[in-house]
Write a protein that binds this DNA or RNA. Structure first.
Lengths: 345, 345
DNA sequence: AAATGCAATGATATCGCTAACAATTCTTGT
DNA sequence: ACAAGAATTGTTAGCGATATCATTGCATTT
């Protein structure tokens, strides 16, 4: 098996009849190169199947081709989904991902962030919730002048570019879905109060009820923590009520799974006697029985976009400039499965 | 804030009074350098806080510092745990992880593997189960002469170095745990038959019963698929038996979660009326109510070891040489939680 | 004591690319 | 039609490490 040597930039330059710099410029899409030369170069690139050598780029250039990712809790499907998709996107641009866990120990967290900046010399950093709302982390990044994107941030929205979905609207729509199915006794389990998304989903729920002139007793609203246990306990209380709800909207899938479990224990069949909806569309949504009607978060799209943003050279300036142009609200999707149904008579 | 330039190999060499090559050799730990010079170099390295520039190493040397990771199903906590830990280990050695999903489309899979080898030029590849048992993938790797480590392989064990845990022993011990608690009517839900671990766990279960002179009717053994649904359905059948088991050992946590759900639906309290044990100790284990007694797989340790193996230069030769020395069986651990109890009278 | 061999160390030439600046071509106004 | 300025393209010099080969030093043999 003859080993074919990878084409170098020089090979491309020769084949296209231009200088290596022209090729370099075409590859990094930055400076303007005439359409004619660009075409010539691209032709040569394709003919030789040329792919720039990342190591050489890093050594010669100012980019490190490294992207930092700060997450909080490893064990959520949110993080791993984001990670896997991010890894894929990175491949396309020749970047690499450096992931770091942040925990409650703020001091340690700051060290990790500084390490990422100084030692690893990342081109940019992605902050997953809830890291994107830790003031100390944000301050450190700002001081170091490192560009960063936040995913679903809850505060200081004009501090940096960010990517999110409309949690409020999703909360509104999924509640309306239940209302349209004839439910009026709709309960809600609020998510972790430390994460802004909880509040938005809750507000969407409230407004959907209000705009349909539906009143629910305060017992229909319980505070959860985004965990299975908290959903389970909240549901236990609600289902023990004399006049129990006919539908429960849990602010994430884990709590919805807890609700289902509680319903099973109370001999309630789902969806006939109780409709349940979740939020996230993680692995769990199709794991529990019956499968959850839920909101699909565009996590993969968020990951791809985040990488793309940091990879684009413009980004570095952008984060300093007016960041209003760098707000990305992606679409969510209601995924209807078997955990909800028209209210029985 | 004055930006401190990172020390280069030359700075270290000057400070230590040796040539750059000596420093290089010390850093890569490979050739022998006298103890005296090594000490000198290390001192300078520490004083200057020197860290080799990975890009330069890659450009000049023969290593790519890239490690490929082939996985099958993204959505298991197995993969994400492995990934996160792997990412961490990579940081320490300056390597990077390139992850690629393999699916049922064998042809596409082979393309992905070849791409990893030829385009990405990885130093080595890690195969997660069940990718590590796909013959076409193994053949391709062998032909390309790329070193690889397999995690928990099921076949052709002397084909390559591998890392695993003793699934048989774990199955044996967790069954014995139930037996010691007085259970004799112990059911088992077998895992996906395409994964060798299923068979081993099952065999451990059988042998534990046998060595305690316990016989169970064939209805106590159901075939599952490692999914929640399959566990749920298997348990439904078993619990509907006239003489139902007092304990069920599911071959993974997801199926165990299904068992719990089925038990709830049958009004059985856990662990009083039914003991349940899982396998994996993933997120789910502490998510369901009650928390699962299960086997903690040393996934993180496996990840760290796999990276370490590939990072060590010796590895390249090793995979060609007699690979018998490269079998690593790591310890597991029984994690006792609340899903099992002494058999009620 | 000279010859031999091996281990430890050093000098030098790249690796493939981009930054910075230089040179060239193309606009455009007059 | 021509100069001035803008846009495009080319030239050169590294980036920071390792491979390769040459050299040195020292123990061992004769």
């Amino acid at each position: 098996m003859a080993k074919v040597k990878r084409a170098r930039i020089q090979d491309v330059a020769e084949k296209a009849g231009v200088s290596t710099m022209t090729v370099s410029r075409v590859m990094s899409k930055d400076t303007k190169v005439s359409a004619a030369k660009t075409a010539l170069v691209m032709e040569a690139v394709n003919a030789l199947n040329y792919r720039p050598n990342v190591a050489a780029r890093r050594l010669a250039g100012s980019q490190s081709f490294l992207i930092g990712l700060l997450y909080f809790d490893l064990d959520t499907s949110y993080v791993s989904k984001f990670l896997l998709r991010g890894l894929k996107s990175c491949r396309a641009t020749g970047h690499h991902l450096v992931a770091d866990e942040i925990d409650d120990d703020i001091e340690k967290s700051i060290v990790a962030v500084k390490d990422l900046i100084e030692v690893t010399q990342v081109d940019g950093i992605i902050l997953l919730p809830p890291v994107c709302d830790i003031p100390e982390v944000l301050t450190t990044l700002k001081e170091a002048n490192v560009p960063f994107v936040r995913i679903a941030p809850d505060s200081q929205l004009n501090l940096s570019p960010y990517i999110c979905m409309d949690d409020y609207q999703a909360g509104f729509e999924i509640t309306e879905l239940l209302i349209k199915q004839g439910h009026t006794k709709i309960g809600h389990i609020i998510g972790n109060p430390n994460q802004g998304a909880s509040r938005l989903r809750y507000q969407g729920y409230l407004d959907a009820l209000r705009s349909n002139q539906i009143n629910v007793p305060p017992e229909y609203i319980e505070q959860g923590m985004f965990t299975y246990d908290s959903g389970f306990n909240a549901a236990k209380k609600m289902l023990a009520l004399k006049d129990r709800p006919s539908a429960i909207f849990a602010a994430n899938d884990e709590m919805a799974a807890g609700v289902i479990s509680a319903a099973h224990m109370n001999q309630l069949t789902i969806p006939n006697q109780l409709s349940v909806t979740g939020f996230d569309d993680g692995h769990l949504a199709t794991t529990v029985t019956p499968h959850l009607t839920t909101i699909r978060q565009p996590i993969q799209e968020m990951a791809a976009l985040a990488i793309e943003l940091i990879a684009s050279k413009k980004f570095a300036d952008a984060s300093k400039a007016n960041s209003r142009e760098y707000r990305h609200v992606l679409d969510f999707e209601i995924v209807e499965r078997e955990s909800n149904a028209v209210k029985g008579t």
